[in-house]
């Protein structure tokens, strides 16, 4: 239900759109009246950007848990995502990382991307200058623009307010020198499409779509195809190439041409789950339990031997399982099989 459309038809809601002088939608109201002109969104800046060049799979790491720092164990992947919220909830860690910068702190030689996807209570605390200070101190190779929250079961004016805020912050972030990753968010296809178009106007070409909760709530298929279609349509008209990364999803989706980033390889290892062919298995599953794996981490071990290893040396067992999951997931996402049409 669009409250502005309702208002145009004569329906108003006390406390939200009534009385008119206190209407909460006035900052966005596109309707011209006798007393005032329609609200025009302030003009957006523009910056020329090039694609970040996402790999098919970019592992997320847990910066507070060194067991997820896979490069220390000989596995080489060119890009990682570091979630900012993990630093925000740990002041000492944030101080330490801010003083050294992400590259020196992690000792990682590839590209480090900063993820701004974070819990709502943290989003509400941060102001623009906080974001700028954090990005400057951490020195990532690219950063997402700040996240927002757009829930399907909120009144639409809330998700629209958040979507406008997202675009406004995307505009402010153009002042940063760091390469930028746009965000695809919205509680319905219209909001998603609007947010994409405004960001493309500003010059964004690389996008990330936080998708974990959408997938859990069976809503991803309502929004992702629309986002892909919007990007394809704009790409066709403007002759610009875009790239899209699905953030927080642990399996390959039916749409082609997407990149993925998640921490599942590590989280599931901590739960004792084993990946094979990009699919998740319980260690107890007889289908995989006695099958040897030839990946760099397992070197011929079968899951049963990993169980035995965990019983002897829990740390070593967990490390081996996490690396196996990472390598398997990377292989699965990089397979050239494309089931559906994508970007």
């Amino acid at each position: 239900m669009c409250l502005i459309a309702q208002c145009q038809r004569g329906f108003q809601y006390t406390g939200i759109t009534y009385p008119k002088s206190f209407c909460r939608l006035r900052p966005y109201c596109p309707i011209k009246t006798a007393n005032r002109p329609s609200v025009q969104i302030s003009s957006l800046s523009k910056r020329s950007m090039t694609k970040i060049g996402f790999e098919r799979f970019i592992p997320q790491i847990d910066i507070s848990d060194k067991k997820s720092w896979f490069w220390r164990h000989g596995v080489e992947l060119p890009e990682i995502f570091v979630p900012l919220w993990q630093l925000l909830i740990n002041e000492n860690l944030l101080e330490d990382v801010s003083s050294k910068g992400l590259h020196d702190f992690l000792g990682f030689n590839g590209k480090i991307f900063l993820s701004m996807v974070m819990p709502d209570e943290l989003l509400d605390k941060l102001r623009l200058k906080d974001y700028f200070r954090l990005v400057e101190n951490l020195g990532p190779d690219a950063t997402m623009i700040p996240d927002n929250y757009t829930y399907v079961d909120d009144p639409l004016f809330l998700s629209w307010s958040q979507t406008v805020k997202l675009v406004s912050l995307a505009n402010d972030f153009l002042k940063l020198d760091t390469p930028l990753i746009g965000l695809i968010k919205g509680s319905n296809p219209l909001q998603v499409d609007w947010a994409i178009r405004r960001q493309v106007e500003m010059g964004y070409v690389s996008f990330a779509m936080p998708a974990r909760e959408l997938l859990e709530d069976n809503l991803l298929d309502d929004l992702l195809p629309g986002a892909i279609m919007s990007l394809k349509w704009i790409s066709k008209r403007t002759k610009t190439d875009f790239e899209l990364l699905v953030y927080g999803v642990g399996r390959r989706l039916k749409y082609g041409g997407l990149s993925y980033s998640n921490l599942f390889w590590f989280l599931e290892a901590k739960q004792g789950h084993y990946f094979k062919g990009g699919k998740l298995y319980s260690f107890k599953d007889p289908e995989i339990r006695f099958e040897e794996c030839t990946c760099e981490a397992c070197r011929g071990m079968m899951p049963q031997e990993l169980i035995d290893l965990m019983l002897c040396d829990k740390e070593l067992g967990l490390k081996t399982l996490a690396l196996h999951n990472l390598l398997d997931m990377n292989r699965a996402f990089n397979e050239r099989k494309v089931n559906g049409r994508g970007l």
Partner: peptide, 14 residues
């Protein structure tokens, strides 16, 4: 982080 259903996210987290 907020996406999907606010009610469900609240339940999942708390």
């Amino acid at each position: 982080m907020g996406g999907g259903s606010r009610v469900k996210q609240y339940e999942r987290r708390f």
